[in-house]
Structure formats: structure tokens, C-alpha cells
Design a protein around this nucleic acid. Structure first.
Lengths: 327, 327
DNA sequence: TTACTAATACTCAATTTGAGATTTAATGGA
DNA sequence: TCCATTAAATCTCAAATTGAGTATTAGTAA
């Protein structure tokens, strides 16, 4: 069983880009969910080409690039997705084809401090329609949904829109971030779509002014925003069945902080009493005898992650049904 | 923001292999879970190289290869994982590096018939330790776990083994198929590891007889068995929260058949009465007035998937906790 | 007519959920 | 010092879900 040579010698060279979505919670800004960029002006994610000569696995390559670009040593890393159609942003080189693989990394507030605050960007700047913490985002009904249905070419696309955005009676599935972003891209409702449709500009902003005024959040170079959407979907799903949230927290935290962080990930509010009942019942946390005094109100107990759970199979996450009610 | 040229001109050529894990249920064999191979002798999964000249996305490339090799048009397809260290099986060509991306496809019994039965192989032939339907597989305690702990080099590896195999008090997490396979590979308990350690053989069996006698199931060329492990883990997870099971069934089925298929996926038995209560409560199925007469016993009603659920967001799957008790 | 088999129906205690009301411990004026 | 304010922490309770049965029914074969 030997590996056959490529059928066709004059084929394109393939290049694999490794892209890191490094997520952390901003402890100074009421627990906002943030992502690391390496270039404030352009919102570039840390990335680099995979070079099998130097790195045995793609994940090792990714860690290398992140180390190089930011000095950070990543702990938790997981592969997200490999996009083969990165050619949807064009570089003008017909002899090379770029494939991009995204990774999700999680960083706690201590590690977070190694980077300038300005490079940590609020995730919802890129997806304003994904944040239901202050009610349903008006942009959905004022802009996105009408535009999508305008663009839709029939019942099948209507169906897709309904499935992704849960219009009307159906429920919003917060994990469906990618399907929503892809639809918006196809319908030209995000800047990247406008950019990619214009072959001679590789992301530089010299596109006609009107088109850049899309109200659908900040944009990113390459397909980085699509990768970020994948990461958001993944962490929203994961937080419900694995205790990843603790990788985002400091060693000591109040239950309220824990809740705010979870809400930042899920993009909606949770019921306070039931939230704490759950984490306590599952013994995910242990109370310390330290207290945190607030400017007003009863001081909160500080908790830590139950270290006894490290290395125990089947530790569940927060087991939160999709879209709970307000707190 | 133009894409920089590769730093280093004399780098290796990268080739992307696309691999399909096509899964179906064997209706003639009490609902066994099977996978399509294109080469009975070698257990080869359908695969082909990604050629961006001809296919816009990797998924389109995959569908093309499957069509080519088997004539089948795939419906449900989802990407699994991209392995960059496929170099762990060697082809002796130091100038090319192979990356492999796995896909999961699901096929119903009608489509299944298009292929010769002999090419559909029982998934548990490749993972005998994953099947708890007739109790805990003896191979775990007789061979795998003792060998793993022998091989383990300390407390940290012990921990890894415990996490993946849930030894003793901890529970078996049926979704952890990949972690288990990877450990067994590292510990040289699967044939692929022996093969890959031997650089001048590319999968042909001329390795010393003793090593091929590993009792850990049939093996596959390349890293196909690792990809299959990824697929099994994914479908085990997915069946619990999305109604994928119906893509594996004929249009009409009894609740018992539905249960057997689910058990084949999960690798353990379920409680019969509760299973039917669940699918009925969630209105996943609709009773028809057809009956299926068995050789003995009361005839069973035929059901069909509730078509009203097509296109409804948030349809849940079978919501089965990890490892239920016997039926 | 009777044994046998499997589908279907029903039961019931124990848990878990969803949504609250109530109590407690702090702070900062009047 | 006392009181309003704030948020943590505790407690309540009905409704829904789960886990693990027992009981009944509709067929087949002897």
C-alpha cells in the first residue's frame, strides 16, 4: 500500500495557514470575552504557515508561531476546522492555494496580562448580533433579517435562514455562530464578502465608502472572522459539558464572576440562584475562607476550582440548556 | 495585507489527503454499525488527494473522490479533523509531507445497497474494546489495561490512561474513542504502531509474525483507523443532541430497530421503556398504521421520522446520558 | 387451547428544573 | 446610631424528567 504520486504534476502548491483564536476574560471590564489580535489596526489573529520540516504536528507549529508573535506559551489548545476554500480571499497568486486551519486556545487572566490590553478585543465587536445579554440585539430585526430575506432566492434559502437565526417562533441556538456568519457572508452583509468580491484588493481598505459602512461589526483580514465564529460556536458548546470555564478564570473567583464569564461566552443571561446551585451540587468549586468586598452590598465568598476533579473522567460542564431566561 | 511568500523556498511539498468515513446500519444483521471500505483485503477507506485546481472546497473534493470510487452521491457530510502528523506512517519520500483530513458521511439502508455487502465492515472489528453491548469487553482487563500500565512511565501517564479508559471507579466515557486509540498507538498495542515504527514497509504485511498477532482488532492502511476512531467519537456524541440517527434509518422502522441502531452507535444497551418514552415525548417519530410482524411475539408498529421537524432549529437528539444500564 | 415472545402500557419514587421569595452582611449617608 | 441600599446567600415549591421497574396485549407455533 504505497502512496501514489500526485496524478498531475502541474498542480497548485498547497500552503497551510495555522490560525490561533486565543480567548480570555477581561477581569477589569465586567468579565467581557476577548480575543487576542497581533495588530490592533487590522485585527489580525496570530498566524503562520505550517512547515512540516520544522514541526512534527500542526499544533506544534501553531504554538511556535504564537510564541514567536506574542511570547505566550499556550496551555489549552484544540483544533477547530480546516477551510479549504480560503481562496475566497484572493492573493492574486494562481499557483498557490491556501488552506487554513483554526485553533482555539484559552488563557487565564494572569497569562492575559502578558499582552497589552489594547490587543485584546471584545469578541462581540465582531459579532454584535450574537450578544443577547441586554435583550435581543436590534440589528437582527432592523438590518440582518430583512436583508437576508431580501437576498433569499426562495423557500430553501428561507428555510436555511430560519434554521440559523431561529426567526419568529423558533428558538435562537447560540451555538450556530458559523451558520449565521456564513449566511451573512453569502448575502454580502459582512465587509469580508465585499472585499473578497473585489479581486484586486487584498484587504486594504480602498473600497467604495458606502460598502465599508456595513453595521455588522468590525472585520478581520483573510478569513479570520470566520475562524473566530467557529471558535465562538465551539466554546459556547463546550462550556456546557466540559469545565473549560475554569481555564478562563483566575485561581480565586466569586460565583458572580463565574456567572458573568459564562454569560459572556453564551451571550445571554442566566438565573443566578440556579447557577450557583448547579456548580455547588456538581462540586465543581470549593469555597475558601477569603471574602471579596464590593463597593456596596454583602461581600462575596471567594471560590476555587475543585482540584480533586483534575484527572477525573466525565466531569461535566455547566449543563445549561440553550437560552435560559434572565437572571 | 498581502499574503507573505513562504519564508523558505526549499520547503517540503504539502499534500492533503481527503478521507471518508461512510457509516451505515446493516439492516440484515441486527442493526450493526458498519463502515464502507473500498478494498476488502486492506480495509482502505475511500480517499483521494485534494486538488484545488479542480475543487473549490475540500468537501467538494471529497464528494468527487467518493463518487469516483464507489459511485455514491453523499448526502450528510461533516468534517472531522485534520492530522498534520500523518508522517507517522512513512512513504519514504522526504520531499513531500502528507496531511490528512477526515470526513464523516452518513448513508441510509437504501443507499447502502448500492455497495457490495462485503465492503461494509463492522466498526467494532476495528475497535473490539469499544463495544459494551454484551458487557465489558474482556480484552480491556485481560490485555489492554495491563499492557498500558506496564508501558506507562509514571503518574502522569497513569493519569492519562485513567482519564481515557476510566479504570476502576471512574466511568467509561464512550465518546473518548480517539484518546483511547492514541494511547494504544503510543503503547504499541495496535498494529499500525508496529508498522509505522518499521520505516521500510508501507503497510504491507511482512513484519515478524508475533507482532501482527495483536488481539486489538483489524487494522487499516495509513492513519485510517485513527480517522475511524475520530468518526466513532463524533457520531456517539452527535446522536445525543442532534437527530442524526434518522439519517441512518430507512423511512419506516420499529422503535426496537431505532433502539438497536442507537445502541450500535453508543456501544452499550439502553432501557427499552424509557427509550421509547423519550422519542415519543420529543415527538421525534410518528406512528404509521403499518405493522411489522416478527417470527414470534406481538407485531411492532412502524414509525417514521416526524417530517415536521425538518428545518426546525433546536431539534434535540436522543438525550441519553453517558452509559445507561442494561435494557 | 395453551405456552411463549416481544411490543406496548402503566406506575412510582427520586431527582432535577425553573422561577421565585426571604434573609443576611456589608456600605454610605442623615 | 439608624436607615436605605445593594448584592450575596439561603430557602421554597410546583412542574417536569429520570430511573427502574410491573402489568397487559397481540401476535406465532405446538
Amino acid at each position: 500500500m504505497s502512496h501514489p504520486a500526485h496524478k498531475n504534476a502541474k498542480s497548485m502548491e498547497i500552503i497551510i495557514d495555522l490560525n490561533a483564536v486565543i480567548i480570555s476574560i477581561d477581569p477589569n471590564n465586567q468579565g467581557e470575552l476577548t480575543v487576542l489580535t497581533i495588530d490592533k489596526a487590522n485585527n489580525l489573529l496570530p498566524w503562520g504557515q505550517y512547515d512540516p520540516m520544522h514541526h512534527k504536528t500542526m499544533e506544534i507549529g501553531l504554538r511556535h508561531w504564537v510564541k514567536n508573535l506574542s511570547g505566550m506559551m499556550l496551555d489549552y489548545v484544540e483544533q477547530l476546522y480546516t477551510f479549504g476554500d480560503s481562496g475566497r480571499f484572493s492573493y492574486g497568486d494562481p499557483n498557490r492555494h491556501i488552506v487554513s486551519t483554526g485553533y482555539l486556545a484559552i488563557v487565564n487572566p494572569e497569562i492575559r496580562e502578558q499582552q497589552p490590553t489594547s490587543q485584546w478585543r471584545n469578541i462581540y465587536d465582531f459579532f454584535p448580533w450574537e450578544d443577547f445579554r441586554n435583550g435581543r440585539p436590534p440589528i437582527l430585526d432592523k438590518f440582518i433579517l430583512p436583508k437576508l430575506y431580501d437576498w433569499s432566492d426562495g423557500i430553501e434559502t428561507d428555510q436555511r435562514i430560519k434554521l440559523s437565526f431561529g426567526s419568529q417562533n423558533d428558538v435562537w441556538d447560540e451555538e450556530n455562530t458559523v451558520a449565521r456568519f456564513e449566511l451573512m457572508y453569502e448575502a454580502n452583509l459582512v465587509f469580508e464578502a465585499v472585499r473578497d468580491a473585489n479581486p484586486d484588493m487584498s484587504g486594504e481598505i480602498n473600497i467604495n465608502e458606502a460598502d465599508t459602512k456595513l453595521p455588522t461589526g468590525s472585520y478581520m483580514p483573510f478569513d479570520h472572522r470566520r475562524i473566530l465564529a467557529t471558535a465562538l460556536g465551539r466554546i459556547r458548546s463546550k462550556v456546557k459539558y466540559k469545565p473549560v470555564i475554569f481555564d478562563l478564570m483566575s485561581n480565586f473567583f466569586t460565583l458572580f464572576e463565574l456567572q458573568k464569564s459564562t454569560e459572556a461566552i453564551l451571550g445571554h443571561r442566566l438565573h443566578k440562584q440556579n447557577f450557583r446551585r448547579y456548580v455547588e451540587r456538581e462540586k465543581l468549586v470549593v469555597k475558601t475562607d477569603e471574602m471579596q468586598h464590593q463597593p456596596s452590598g454583602r461581600p462575596a465568598s471567594l471560590y476555587e476550582f475543585n482540584k480533586q476533579l483534575v484527572g477525573v473522567a466525565n466531569v461535566v460542564g455547566l449543563k445549561i440548556g440553550n437560552s435560559s431566561s434572565a437572571y
